[in-house]
Design a binder for these strands. Structure first.
Length: 905
RNA sequence: GCCCCCGUGGCGGAACUGGUAGACGCGCAUGGUUUAGGACCAUGUCUCGAAAGAGGUAGGGGUUCAAAUCCUCUCGGGGGCACCA
C-alpha cells in the first residue's frame, strides 16, 4: 500500500505552515464563503457522520478554489451545552476543564481528515471573547423589544432539570434523555420570532425586491413552511346570552358556521373565571380545567384516546349568522396556545368535533353535500374493525378473487357482478348508509377495502362540496362560502379574516450552568417604583460590562427547582442596578444551549463572527462581513431544518433592521447532505454500530476514508457505511499511486503537452458532478479514466496531471504528493481546474439505435448529424432489421437525431 | 391522520430534458502470478434458453412509436409535523 501515513502527515504540516487555506479576508478578489456546521465536541470524539458532512463540504470548497475563488472555510467548536455538562458530571470533572480536553482532541481529529480549514479564524462558543457577543446580541434584542420575560407553562425535563423549547420535545419526551416532559409554570425569557413569521415564510419563495427565494434544498424549505404553519383563518365573535362578554373563536372553515352546534374553550381560557358567577357548575368546570392544565401537551394530544370535557351550565353562545343558541364546553383538546383558545364545533364536518359530539350526544348538522358516488371516481368500502369478521365471512362466500391483508387493511377483490350484493351485506351490517359505501375499481374486479377506524369517515365529511342548510351560503362551495361569510361578518363587526401561525416565540432561557449567562439585571427598587409595567425593574447589563463571565463554580449540578445553579452563587448574582445604583440581582439563567450538535443562540450567529474572530470591539467588522457575507454555500444536516436554520434567519433579519448588515438572509445556498447510516441502521451507541473515523484513517489514510464516504451514494441522499467496500477505494488509490510513481521516476511517457481528446468528456462529467454534489459518480468517472490509462499502457504526462487535478478535491493528500513527485510547483490545490474543450465532446461517428415497434433490434454506425433518409437507408440495410420487419409494412418512422430510429410496422 | 422522500442484480449504487437498463465499485466464478496469502493481473458475472430469442427496474392500470423515468391506484421502507380548529 502506498505510504499514506507519511504523506498525510507531511502535507498537513506544510499546508498549515504555508497557510494555503487562509484567504486574505480584507483583500480577496473573488470571495466564496463555504460554511459547514461547526461540530459539537462530544466526549466520544469526531464521529464519521461529522467527517461525512465536512468532507462533502470541503470537496466543494476545494473545487471552487481551483476554479479561481478565494475560499473561506472556517471551523470552530460549538462547545457550550448540556451534553458536555452532563458528561462532565458523569465523569466527575468540570465542564470548563473538559472543554479544553475535548477541544484538543477535536482539533487534532479535524486536522487529520484532510479539510482545507482556515485555522486562524477558529472560534469556540464557550470562549468569553465569543459569548461576550452572544450576550451583546441578547442586549440588542432586549433594546429592540424582541426579548421579553413571561410566566408561561413550559416544557420541563425532570431529568435534565431545565425547560425545553417545543422543538426539543419529541413525542412528549425530552429529545436528549428521553425522559417524559412535564408542564411547569415558570418565568422565562423569550425572543419574539413570531413577529417575523411572515417574512421567514415569504423569503423561502421570494426575496424582497422581487428576487427569487433563497436557494435551499427543497425539503428544508418544506419543513420550515410546515413549522411556521400559516393558516388563513377567520375570527368570529359569539356573544353570550345574558352577558356582555364575547367569545372569539378562530376557524379555517368559516363556511361551516351554520353547522356549528356547540363551542369549546381551552381549560386556560380567561372567560372561564370571568364567567364564574354565570356558570352554574363552576366548581366542576374549574376542577376539570385545573386538572387539564397540569397535563402536558402530549397527554392532551396523542396520548388522549378519548375526548373529555365539561359543559359550562348556564352559558349559551349565540351564533352570529342565525342567532341559534349553542352550549359551551371546556375541553383539553382545545389549546390555548393556538388561535384564541376557543373554537366552534361542527361535528358533521370535523372528526374531533364529531368525537366530542358523540360523547355528549350533541346534534350533528350536515351543511355540505357530499359529492355523488359517480363524481368520486374510484370508490371504496371501509368497514369498522369490530364488524370485520362476520361481514367478511359473509362476503367471502361470493368467491374472492384475491385477498391480502396488512396490519391496517384487509382487501378483497370481488367480481363486478357481485358488487351490489356485497353492498347489501354491508348495509345489513349497519356500517353506514349507502352513500358511504365505496368501491375501488381494479380492472374487471372491484376491490373491497376493509379498514379499521373507518366509522369517522362514514359519519364525517371534511371535504369540499355544495353547501346546504346554510342560509345565505347555500349552493356555494367552500372557498366562495368562506369569502362570503367573511365579508358578512366583517360588515356587521362580528368577525374578520385573520392569519395565524403555528410558530411560537423562541424560549431561550435554561436553568443550567454550562452556557452564556443571560446579561440582565433585576432591580427590586425600580420594579417597585414602576410596578405594573411590563418588564418592570429589568435592565440589560451595560455593554461596557460585557461579557458577564460564567464563573467557575464547584457545584454546577442542576438544582431541579426551576432555578439555575448560578442562583446560589452570591458573588455572581449580587450586583448594582445600572439605573439607580441600588442593590440588584443578576439573571442566573443561561441562554439556550442544547442539542448534541448545536447550541441555538450561540450557533445562530457564529458564521458572522468567523469574519472577525480577533476583534474585541465589535461582533464583526462591517467591511469584512460585507465582503464575505451572506454565506455563499452552507452544507449541513437536514435535522437542523427548523431549529438552527430558522433561528439564524431570524437573527439575520434583526441584524439588518439594526443596520448592521444590508441583507436579511444569511445563507444564499443551503444544501442538506443525506444521513450516513451504518450496516443498514442509524448509527447509535446502543446499537453499537457507531463508526469512528480514526481507526480507518490510521489503517487506510484519510484520502481513502474521504473517497469511500463519498462513493457510498449520492451526497444529498446519504449512504450506508459497510466495511466491505472500502477495499475498492484502497485498490483505486494504490493504482493511482503506482501509475504516478512510474511517471515520476522517469518511465517512458508521451508528452504532448496537451490533454488527450478522450479525457475531455471525463473532465466535463467530473466538473458537473462535483458542482452538483454527485461525488459518487465523479469518483466512478475517475475510476473509468484510470482504467483507460492502464489499458492504453501509454500515458502522457499532461493527461495524468489533469487526472490528478480532477482527483485533488476528493483526495487532497495523495494528489499533492504525486503532483510534487512529477516535479510540479506547490500546491496542486492552488492550480486551475482543468477545462474541457467542447470540440472533443462531439464524436464524429455515433451509434444509432435501431428499433422495430419500440424494441431494440440492432444498431448502425453513422456520421454525426446524419439525416432521416440516410439513417433509414442504413438501418434497413441491416440483416437483423430486415428480419425483424419481415413481411410487415412500415407504417411510421420515428427518428431522433443522433440517437435512434424506430420503425413501426 | 397530514406533508416530504424512496423502492433498479447477491450488495452499495449508475442511467442527460422519456430513447441500447444495470456505469463504477464490492462480492462471486475461472485462469494466471506468488513460498503463501485476505496481495496483484486477466476474463466473466440480470433471469430463462444449447442457440435464435424471450422476459426483466415492488405490484396493478394508463399515456406514448418508445416508460426505471410521466399520470393513477395498491403494497413496502425512511423522514418530518401532529387534537393547530
Amino acid at each position: 500500500m502506498y505510504p499514506f501515513s507519511q504523506i498525510e502527515k507531511k502535507w498537513s504540516k506544510r499546508w498549515f505552515e504555508t497557510k494555503i487555506y487562509e484567504p486574505n479576508l480584507r483583500r480577496a478578489k473573488r470571495p466564496f464563503y463555504n460554511l459547514m456546521m461547526f461540530p459539537y465536541p462530544s466526549a466520544e470524539g469526531l464521529h464519521v457522520g461529522n467527517m461525512y458532512a465536512f468532507t462533502g463540504s470541503d470537496i466543494y470548497g476545494r473545487f471552487r478554489r481551483m476554479q479561481g475563488n478565494d475560499v473561506f472555510q472556517p471551523i470552530g467548536l460549538d462547545g457550550f451545552g448540556i451534553h458536555s455538562e452532563n458528561y462532565a458530571l458523569k465523569i466527575g470533572t468540570h465542564p470548563m476543564k473538559q472543554a479544553k480536553v475535548s477541544e484538543k482532541r477535536f482539533y487534532d481529529q479535524l486536522r487529520s481528515i484532510g479539510n482545507g480549514f482556515a485555522w486562524e479564524e477558529r472560534l469556540e462558543t464557550y470562549d468569553p471573547e465569543y459569548y461576550k457577543w452572544t450576550q451583546w446580541i441578547f442586549v440588542q434584542m432586549w433594546k429592540r423589544g424582541l426579548a421579553y420575560r413571561k410566566k408561561a407553562s413550559v416544557n420541563w425535563c425532570p431529568s435534565c432539570k431545565t425547560v425545553l423549547a417545543d422543538e426539543q420535545v419529541v413525542n412528549g419526551d425530552c429529545e436528549r434523555c428521553g425522559t417524559e416532559v412535564v408542564k411547569k409554570d415558570l418565568e422565562q425569557w423569550f425572543f419574539k420570532i413570531t413577529k417575523y413569521a411572515d417574512r421567514l415564510l415569504k423569503n423561502l419563495d421570494n426575496l424582497p425586491g422581487g428576487k427569487a427565494g433563497i436557494d435551499w434544498s427543497e425539503k428544508v424549505k418544506i419543513a420550515q413552511r410546515n413549522w411556521i404553519g400559516k393558516s388563513e383563518s377567520t375570527e368570529i365573535n359569539f356573544s353570550i346570552k345574558a352577558s356582555d362578554k364575547i367569545i372569539t373563536v378562530v376557524t379555517t372553515r368559516a363556511d361551516t358556521i351554520f353547522g356549528a352546534t356547540f363551542l369549546v374553550l381551552a381549560p386556560e381560557h380567561g372567560l372561564i373565571t370571568e364567567l364564574a358567577h354565570q356558570i352554574k357548575n363552576y366548581d366542576e368546570v374549574r376542577h376539570y380545567a385545573e386538572k387539564a392544565m397540569k397535563k402536558t401537551d402530549f397527554e392532551r394530544g396523542l396520548l388522549a384516546k378519548k375526548k373529555t370535557g365539561v359543559r359550562l351550565k348556564g352559558v349559551l353562545a349565540i351564533n352570529p349568522v342565525n342567532g341559534v343558541e349553542l352550549p359551551v364546553f371546556v375541553s383539553d383538546f382545545v389549546l390555548i396556545s393556538y388561535g384564541t383558545g376557543a373554537i366552534f364545533s361542527v361535528p358533521a364536518h370535523d372528526e374531533r368535533d364529531f368525537e366530542f359530539a358523540k360523547l355528549f350526544h350533541l346534534p350533528v348538522i350536515s351543511v355540505i353535500e357530499r359529492p355523488k358516488r359517480e363524481a368520486l371516481g374510484p370508490i371504496s368500502v371501509q368497514i369498522y374493525d369490530e364488524d370485520l369478521s362476520e361481514t367478511a365471512t359473509e362476503i367471502k362466500r361470493f368467491g374472492i378473487a384475491r385477498e391480502y391483508a396488512t396490519p391496517t387493511v384487509r382487501v378483497y377483490e370481488i367480481a363486478r357482478k357481485n358488487v351490489d350484493r356485497v353492498i347489501e351485506i354491508l348495509e345489513r351490517a349497519r356500517i353506514g348508509n349507502r352513500k358511504d359505501h365505496e368501491l375501488i375499481r381494479r380492472g374487471e374486479d372491484f376491490t373491497l377495502e376493509i379498514k379499521p377506524r373507518a366509522i369517522n369517515f362514514l359519519a364525517v365529511y371534511t371535504g369540499d362540496g355544495r353547501h346546504i342548510n346554510s342560509g345565505f351560503l347555500n349552493n356555494l362551495r367552500t372557498e366562495a362560502a368562506i369569502k362570503k361569510v367573511d365579508t358578512w361578518l366583517k360588515e356587521r363587526g362580528m368577525g374578520k379574516p385573520a392569519v395565524y401561525y403555528h410558530l411560537r416565540d423562541w424560549l431561550i432561557s435554561r436553568q443550567r450552568y454550562w452556557g452564556p449567562p443571560i446579561p440582565m439585571i433585576h432591580c427590586p427598587a425600580c420594579a417597585k417604583a414602576s410596578s405594573g409595567k411590563e418588564n418592570a425593574g429589568w435592565y440589560a447589563v451595560p455593554e461596557k460590562d460585557l461579557p458577564v463571565k460564567l464563573p467557575q463554580i464547584k457545584n454546577f449540578r442542576p438544582t431541579g427547582k426551576g432555578e439555575a445553579p448560578l442562583a446560589s452563587v452570591k458573588s455572581f448574582y449580587e450586583t448594582k442596578c445600572p439605573e439607580c445604583g441600588a442593590k440588584a440581582r443578576r439573571e442566573t439563567d443561561v441562554s439556550d444551549t442544547f442539542l448534541d450538535s448545536d447550541t441555538f443562540l450561540d450557533s445562530a450567529w457564529y458564521f458572522f463572527r468567523y469574519t472577525s474572530v480577533d476583534d474585541k470591539t465589535c461582533p464583526w467588522r462591517p467591511e469584512i462581513a460585507k465582503k464575505w457575507l451572506p454565506v455563499n454555500r452552507y452544507i449541513g444536516g437536514a435535522e437542523h431544518s427548523v431549529l438552527h436554520l430558522l433561528y439564524s434567519r431570524f437573527l439575520t433579519m434583526v441584524f439588518k433592521e439594526m443596520g448592521l448588515i444590508n441583507f436579511e438572509e444569511p445563507f444564499t445556498e443551503f444544501r442538506a447532505h443525506g444521513l450516513l447510516i451504518s450496516s443498514g441502521a442509524k448509527m447509535s451507541k446502543s446499537k453499537g454500530n457507531v463508526v469512528v473515523p480514526d481507526v480507518y484513517i490510521k489503517k487506510y489514510g484519510a484520502d481513502v476514508v474521504r473517497l469511500y464516504l463519498m462513493f457510498l451514494g449520492p451526497y444529498e441522499q446519504g449512504g450506508d457505511w459497510r466495511d466491505a467496500g472500502i477495499i475498492g477505494i484502497v485498490r483505486f488509490l494504490n493504482r493511482v499511486w503506482n501509475l504516478g510513481v512510474k511517471l515520476g521516476t522517469g518511465y517512458k511517457v508521451q508528452s504532448t503537452g496537451r490533454v488527450s481528446p478522450w479525457l475531455h468528456p471525463h473532465i466535463k462529467e467530473i466538473t458537473e458532478d462535483i458542482a452538483n454534489l454527485k461525488y459518487n459518480t465523479a469518483i466512478a468517472e475517475l475510476m473509468t479514466a484510470l482504467n483507460k490509462f492502464e489499458k492504453e499502457k501509454q500515458i502522457s504526462r499532461k493527461d495524468f496531471e489533469t487526472f490528478l487535478l480532477l482527483l485533488a478535491p476528493l483526495a487532497p493528500f495523495i494528489t499533492e504528493e504525486l503532483w510534487q513527485k512529477l516535479g510540479n510547483k506547490y500546491s496542486i490545490h492552488n492550480q486551475a481546474w482543468p477545462k474541457f474543450n467542447t470540440k472533443y465532446l462531439i464524436q464524429n461517428t455515433i451509434t444509432l439505435i435501431v428499433q422495430v415497434n419500440g424494441k431494440v433490434r440492432g444498431q448502425v454506425s453513422v456520421k454525426r448529424g446524419v439525416g432521416e433518409t440516410e439513417a433509414k437507408k442504413l438501418a434497413l440495410a441491416e440483416e437483423k432489421i430486415k428480419k425483424a420487419i419481415g413481411a410487415g409494412k412500415i407504417k411510421r418512422t420515428i427518428f431522433v437525431k443522433d440517437r435512434l430510429i424506430n420503425f413501426v410496422v
